Amino acid sequence: MNAVWLVLFSVGIVFAIFTGNLEAFTKSIFEGAKSAVEVSLFLLGIVSVWMGITRILEDSGLIYRIAHLFRPVISRLFRNIPGDHPSISAITLNVLANLFGLGNAATPLGIKAMQELDTLNEEKGTITFEMMTFIVLNTASIQLIPFSVIGILASYNAVNPAGVVLPVLIATVISALTALVILFSFRKVLK
């Protein structure tokens, strides 16, 4: 991948020199870098806030109450996980972070959920069906309110940054249901 970026960057420099746009090319590089840093700091703020909320939810025990609300859905999807296993809470936190469109904050929660699911794995180094289900659910990530996208659109002064809420909700629900149906269909075929 580094080679691809090097080739693209080199071609861009050569093209800028031959067309006489080296100054504009240099300016756009610095503007792009500035924009990348601003967006990164913005997303870092969102992730920090969500991780703080997650820590408060865990320390207060509220996560177990939230997990209890999600338990019927989680239990139907993850039938081989004991009801009191810590992976249920980790999966619930990940689903909640994805629900609110905080994919970057969901990543560490997803890693924790996979680690917890691995404790139930009898054959270490192989993936269980529950792990596959979680990967599909996490990747599809149903988003009720995509805070990150709304924040980025707002930072670029979009006219209606919240206009993406309904289309994102519909697209993520359809993709999640489709992915889960395919996964469960393959499970029945391969049994």
Rank of each mutant, 00 (worst) to 15 (best):
L22Y: 15
T26V: 15
V37A: 02
E31P: 10
S40A: 11
E23N: 10
E23G: 09
F42I: 12
L8T: 04
K27N: 15
F42L: 12
V14C: 05
I17S: 11
A24L: 09
F42N: 13
S10D: 03
S28F: 02
I17A: 07
N21I: 04
I17P: 14
G20L: 05
F25Q: 01
T26Q: 09
I13E: 07
A36D: 02
V37Q: 03
G12T: 05
S28P: 03
K27I: 02
I13W: 08
A24M: 06
G20K: 05
S10T: 12
F25S: 00
S28R: 08
E23T: 13
V37L: 15
A36S: 07
L41Y: 12
V11W: 09
S40N: 13
A24D: 07
A16Y: 03
N21Q: 13
V37I: 08
E31K: 04
F42P: 02
L41Q: 07
A24E: 14
F18A: 13
E31L: 15
I17F: 12
K27P: 15
I17K: 14
T26I: 08
S10H: 09
F30H: 01
E31F: 06
F42S: 11
F18L: 14
L8R: 06
N21V: 03
V7S: 08
G32F: 00
V7Y: 04
V39T: 12
G32E: 01
I29L: 06
V37N: 03
V39N: 04
K27C: 05
L41S: 02
T19D: 09
K34Y: 01
I29C: 06
L8G: 05
E31N: 13
A36Y: 07
A16W: 05
F42T: 12
A33S: 10
V14S: 03
I13L: 08
E23S: 14
I13M: 10
E38S: 07
F15N: 06
N21F: 15
A16K: 06
G20F: 02
A36R: 02
G20Y: 02
F42A: 10
T19N: 14
L8K: 04
V37G: 00
